[in-house]
Nucleic acid binder design. Structure first.
Lengths: 103, 103
DNA sequence: CAAGTAGTTGCCACTTTGGCAAGTGCTTTC
DNA sequence: GAAAGCACTTGCCAAAGTGGCAACTACTTG
């Protein structure tokens, strides 16, 4: 039989970072948000957000849409199905480790 | 009025590490555990655990007791009041970010 | 053309973390 | 009583993650 591993091994590396955790949390709740909205909500610099968004996008966790609202460009962020699944699994694992009965 | 910061700023740096998170979670549930018990539960090497325990102890999060059970030394780990408070606050912040209504 | 908006990227320095091997303190075995 | 064992501890180091800052892209407005 396979040894049962401690749940920490199942934590999502991407979501262990507080910034990415917060970005994904915000998107999970809001559905879609603009780059600026996320930047202001999470309180991070453009540079840092841009890098973390790129990481999440590369992992297929979120879709980045470029469009124009009037004359100004708008980058919209939305969780993918995969991202949402990863988020939920991560939360469930955290709860499992913490001993949360609702895990 | 003071600007309300995003809750991620209140996350406990010590508890952002999965190993320390797991150690503290286990101790919160069990009360006191031996070094070996934690090592086996969390599935980590002696070296890594020793270092993380030292970090948690330095932060006043846990008390390390050295004693002998028969002839073999036993290092027991217990959360301090401060450690328990930090743990609870960290969990509450995670829930707050995640939008958990029970936060 | 200069300047501004909305991001993006490169470069770099700092920090964290783990593995591995050697070391510590105490005890049992040959 | 020297060697070996047990339960950790520590030093050294290499790899990886992050953020700051400044320069850069792309497009628009004055």
């Amino acid at each position: 039989m396979t040894a049962v591993q401690h749940p920490r091994h199942r934590l999502d590396e991407l979501l262990q970072n507080p910034v990415r955790f917060s970005i994904v949390a915000a998107l999970d709740r809001a559905g879609t948000l603009g780059f600026g909205e996320v930047r202001d909500a999470v309180e991070i610099t453009d540079s840092a957000l841009s890098k973390q968004v790129a990481a999440l996008e590369a992992a297929g966790y979120l879709a980045v849409g470029k469009s124009f609202v009037g004359k100004t460009p708008r980058t919209s962020l939305t969780l993918t199905r995969h991202g949402r699944a990863g988020w939920r699994a991560h939360l469930a694992t955290l709860r499992e480790i913490a001993g949360d009965p609702s895990a």
